[in-house]
Computed example of a mutant assay.
Amino acid sequence: MSTWTARDITDQTGRTVVVTGANSGLGAETAKALGAAGATVILACRNVDKAAPVAAAIGANAQVRRLDLADLASVREFAAGVDSVDVLINNAGVMAVPKSTTAEGFEMQFGTNHLGHFALTGLLLDRITDRVVTMSSLMHRFGSINLDDLNWERRRYSRWPAYGQSKLANLMFAYELDRRLTAAGSTVKSLAAHPGYAATGLQGHTQSLWDRFMGIGNLFAQSAEMGALPELYAATVDSVSSGTFIGPDGPFEQRGYPRVVGSSGKSHDRAAAASLWGESERLTGVTYRFGK
């Protein structure tokens, strides 16, 4: 696995993949690699104009559809327009943004990164034939799930802990989805991935002094093409097991080729994951239906 690249993706002809946030960064590189391998790729993006050049680069295999994960009405509208999907890649996200809220009043990072994808996956689940890949981050290790204040209404808002919470929630969701699919006897897989430290452009949208710092840091980051490899591996390799977390194989998982990696103890807290799941269903109004 240590030298696996996008050139090793098997023929994806006849398969349909939804990639959220495919207009730039990791999502764009993922969409382009899958399109080159023959997949029909649905670029699910809030800004469809920005997705157009990526779709043009892919060619006839690409479709652009609007999806705003910070608006559950948009999530429902998008899901209603999808007939069947082999692979859903929950890639989109926001990072360390100033305090703001989604259309439903959720804290923006938790609402977009976790709740939006939780709702999308639940609404599409009966039409997903192969697997769900959810992007997390090394920052999950610095996150905590505060079930009493998931939306930072009682605490003073802090952008980086809020980001860490959202990325821990992504990972806990992927693990819990795997457990529930397995219990239901489903053959659909749930996997998670993280890109290490990759130059994606996400780091430059914090609207703070961090933008300048992260811009300098990008000089030492691996490329978006390399950062996309873990999610591409998770999305396409037949032998990878459900419930697996894929990240780079280099020092401290900052860069390198995809391999199975570990995660924090908090991410494996089954009781917390079940509680987070219940709160996520309550907040989004999306109840999962598991059938064989």
Rank of each mutant, 00 (worst) to 15 (best):
residue 233 Y to T: 03
residue 161 P to S: 08
residue 72 L to T: 12
residue 100 S to K: 00
residue 279 E to S: 07
residue 156 R to M: 12
residue 10 T to L: 15
residue 215 G to E: 13
residue 44 A to W: 02
residue 54 V to L: 04
residue 169 A to E: 15
residue 150 L to R: 12
residue 260 V to D: 12
residue 159 R to H: 14
residue 227 G to M: 03
residue 238 D to L: 13
residue 80 A to E: 14
residue 212 R to H: 12
residue 125 L to M: 08
residue 181 L to V: 06
residue 258 P to R: 01
residue 218 N to R: 12
residue 209 L to G: 07
residue 14 G to M: 05
residue 209 L to Y: 13
residue 248 P to Q: 08
residue 153 E to C: 01
residue 224 A to S: 15
residue 49 D to F: 07
residue 99 K to I: 03
residue 272 A to T: 14
residue 37 A to Q: 05
residue 11 D to G: 01
residue 217 G to D: 09
residue 232 L to M: 11
residue 14 G to S: 03
residue 60 A to P: 07
residue 163 Y to S: 04
residue 157 Y to M: 10
residue 90 N to M: 00
residue 196 G to N: 06
residue 86 D to E: 10
residue 128 I to T: 06
residue 82 V to R: 10
residue 47 N to R: 11
residue 215 G to A: 04
residue 86 D to V: 13
residue 41 V to L: 01
residue 237 V to I: 13
residue 148 D to T: 03
residue 124 L to W: 08
residue 57 A to G: 13
residue 148 D to N: 10
residue 230 P to K: 03
residue 188 V to M: 13
residue 45 C to Q: 00
residue 5 T to F: 08
residue 116 G to K: 05
residue 58 I to L: 11
residue 73 A to L: 04
residue 186 S to W: 07
residue 140 H to I: 06
residue 153 E to T: 13
residue 119 A to P: 04
residue 229 L to R: 03
residue 237 V to N: 02
residue 281 E to H: 01
residue 88 L to P: 14
residue 253 E to K: 08
residue 113 N to K: 07
residue 190 S to Y: 04
residue 161 P to G: 09
residue 174 A to V: 11
residue 60 A to Q: 11
residue 167 K to T: 00
residue 8 D to E: 12
residue 269 D to M: 00
residue 115 L to R: 10
residue 11 D to W: 01
residue 103 A to P: 07
residue 80 A to F: 11
residue 169 A to S: 02
residue 166 S to C: 00
residue 26 L to M: 05
residue 149 D to K: 00
residue 155 R to E: 15
residue 236 T to H: 05
residue 7 R to K: 15
residue 99 K to P: 03
residue 39 A to H: 02
residue 11 D to C: 01
residue 192 A to R: 04
residue 249 D to Y: 08
residue 95 M to Q: 05
residue 172 M to Y: 07
residue 66 R to K: 06
residue 32 K to V: 15
residue 213 F to W: 11
residue 281 E to F: 00
residue 284 T to P: 03
residue 214 M to I: 14
residue 180 R to H: 09
residue 83 D to S: 08
residue 16 T to N: 12
residue 226 M to W: 07
residue 72 L to R: 11
residue 274 A to K: 10
residue 63 Q to C: 05
residue 218 N to S: 10
residue 198 A to W: 02
residue 96 A to V: 14
residue 70 A to C: 07
residue 177 L to W: 01
residue 145 I to K: 05
residue 44 A to C: 11
residue 97 V to F: 03
residue 179 R to V: 06
residue 267 S to E: 07
residue 234 A to W: 09
residue 182 T to G: 06
residue 33 A to K: 08
residue 64 V to A: 06
residue 177 L to K: 07
residue 120 L to V: 00
residue 189 K to E: 15
residue 54 V to Y: 09
residue 40 T to Y: 02
residue 123 L to R: 09
residue 146 N to Q: 02
residue 188 V to C: 11
residue 194 H to R: 02
residue 267 S to D: 05
residue 249 D to V: 01
